[in-house]
Amino acid sequence: MLRDMEPADIAGGAFKEARLTYFDGASRIVRYTDVEVPFPEGRLIVSCTDVPGMITQANKAFVDMSGYSKEELIGAPHYILRHPDMPRAAFKGLWDTLARGEKWTGYVKNLRKDGAYYWVFATVIGNVRKGNLVGYTSVRRKPSRTKIDECAKLYPTLFAPGEREAYSP
């Protein structure tokens, strides 16, 4: 169970609040700012989850960019990164695509522990071992500013009626 984000963890003073409810029914208050952290040059953010979506592996770039310690990330649900500016529709097709045994790609705005955000170009694939799905690997790389700007305009238009209102803490 994720705890609410603590005001003391938020960098830079002023922040906004939202209550996010995740696919498994869990819910928490997230606090976020308008501070963007640029994706580091030449890095890949790599993480693995088990089938339910709990993080099992996190590389150093993931730890550095998320702001969480490795100990905080391992065993946490991957939606710990979910930013309130990401509409559910932006992830539509992710699970359907993975269920077909294909890889999913998309541009994602991620939430850091300190309330700042970072954009990534994400690819997710299922890990199949001896014919069985045992988890997922997600690799995030640096997106172009053009794509970020397109998504920053598009995503606010994809919220379903009432989806954002439900954020009220």
């Binding site: 890949l44 790599v46 890889k103 997710v124 694939i125 890990n127 071992r129 690997t137 997600s138 690799v139």
Partner: peptide
């Protein structure tokens, strides 16, 4: 297998 999966994402 992990490296193969990673290369597959790239």
């Amino acid at each position: 297998e992990f490296m193969i999966d990673l290369m597959d994402t790239l």
